[in-house]
Design a protein around this nucleic acid. Structure first.
Lengths: 231, 231
DNA sequence: CGCGGACTTGAAGTTAGTCAATTAGAGTGG
DNA sequence: CCACTCTAATTGACTAACTTCAAGTCCGCG
């Protein structure tokens, strides 16, 4: 962690510029303000660990700017990324005493965090906070259910098509998508190797479905054909 | 649905014989009794649909006896089973207005169900109910996270080993496991074909790690070697 | 019993993975 | 500003794992 700023928990201070806050983020802001919980900002450098699998879950986080990957490892190093967390997203909300995945900054990242214990306390007296915690967890579950279908049953091309549509929805700006993560991260998210991801992207480029400004700057030219590929 | 019995919501009536009720089930019973919510029993025949993906989620269910699969389909029929629900397990708790997976009885199955709306009401006034709903959803999320790792990164043999250990833990009785589901269901749960599942089981049998009484009656002879395979 | 679905097993085919070489690009320092 | 370096990404050739297709066998149920 490199910087530390105690901020007022007022909602207006919490939205990152150009990062429209999604429903979970709104819920997080409501929680933070309703309960008088103290929100703190921290920054992490690229590839820095935010918390590790199995560590006590002391805080809940919201991405202010940057991007975070959460993943599980097998003993031999095989990695499954469960989700990418972008500006506005909440992560680290693992009910129970410990984190079930490791969280790392993909790029230099600033997060807002609140003490998990104070959230639990707030939930104990404020039914709205309790409800929001539930729906945030439920929305993680929905994503996981969709992702199990992708991992278990989609082909490489379908996986990449789904990924592009997801990222387009979540971080496209003026039609352009600036991916924060490398090909290996994408592969570990989709259950593929980085080479297979690269080949699928090249093929979509050849077909004119997307255009590269650079390897990580992508413009989708035909979302419909991409959606058709997505099974 | 074939039988319908309105039952008293008392906890003692809800536990299936020889099926120790797991924590989520306890929570469900607490909810049902604390809130005065009416619990009803229904039975479904083998392969009967309990609810469909996208349908309004009117009820939440607990398996009394039998087994249930919940799954998602792709347009061409490829299927991903997200979870198997055995005696004591709660399913259908999808926060939001509609079910995100389809639920079907694997064998003839009896469930207890409560109106989702009455749960929400109870959660609005009873913080303990709200907390239980959250932790039940969180426990589904934990399973989904573990399963993403399996689907995305484990080999066929590792998947089958994990499956056997999970089922052994959840339904072994006197060291014997009576699987309610067919090889195709197992394959669709593990992201494999039924043939690959069959071959892996045969190989474990040849190695003396398990013994078949019949195709679905399995005794694990060496849990340690199975755990070693599970990565 | 004997029918029919479930399961097993074999052989061939396909997809994605592995290994390896090359290219592109970002960041650094002269 | 440009050369250098190092990592990320691409691409190719080959391999391995799993799927597909196709017989058979088992066995649970009428």
């Amino acid at each position: 962690m490199h910087t530390q700023t105690i901020t007022a928990p007022a909602t207006h201070a919490l939205n990152a510029p150009h990062a429209p806050v999604s429903p979970p983020a709104d819920q997080f802001s409501i929680i933070a303000s309703c309960s008088g919980v103290i929100a703190i900002e921290f920054s992490y450098r690229k590839d820095e660990e935010i918390y590790g699998e199995g560590e006590p879950s002391e805080y809940v986080y919201q991405v202010i700017r940057g991007a975070v990957r959460t993943y599980k490892l097998l003993t031999d190093g095989r990695r499954q990324i469960g989700a990418f967390h972008l500006a506005g997203d909440v992560f680290g909300l693992d009910p129970g005493t410990s984190h079930r995945l490791t969280a790392e900054a993909i790029t230099d990242t600033t997060v807002r965090l609140v003490k998990r214990r104070s959230l639990e306390t707030a939930a104990g007296s404020n039914i709205r906070v309790a409800h929001n915690l539930w729906t945030m967890t439920a929305s993680d579950l929905r994503h996981a259910e969709d992702h199990m279908l992708l991992l278990g049953r989609k082909t490489a091309m379908e996986k990449v098509a789904t990924f592009l549509l997801e990222m387009d929805r979540r971080l496209a700006n003026a039609g352009m998508m600036a991916l924060p993560m490398c090909r290996r991260d994408i592969g570990d998210y989709l259950g593929l190797t980085l080479e297979t991801v690269s080949r699928a992207l090249s093929q979509l480029n050849e077909q004119g479905i997307l255009v590269f400004s650079s390897a990580r700057q992508i413009v989708l030219r035909n979302r419909q054909r991409l959606a058709d590929m997505d099974a």
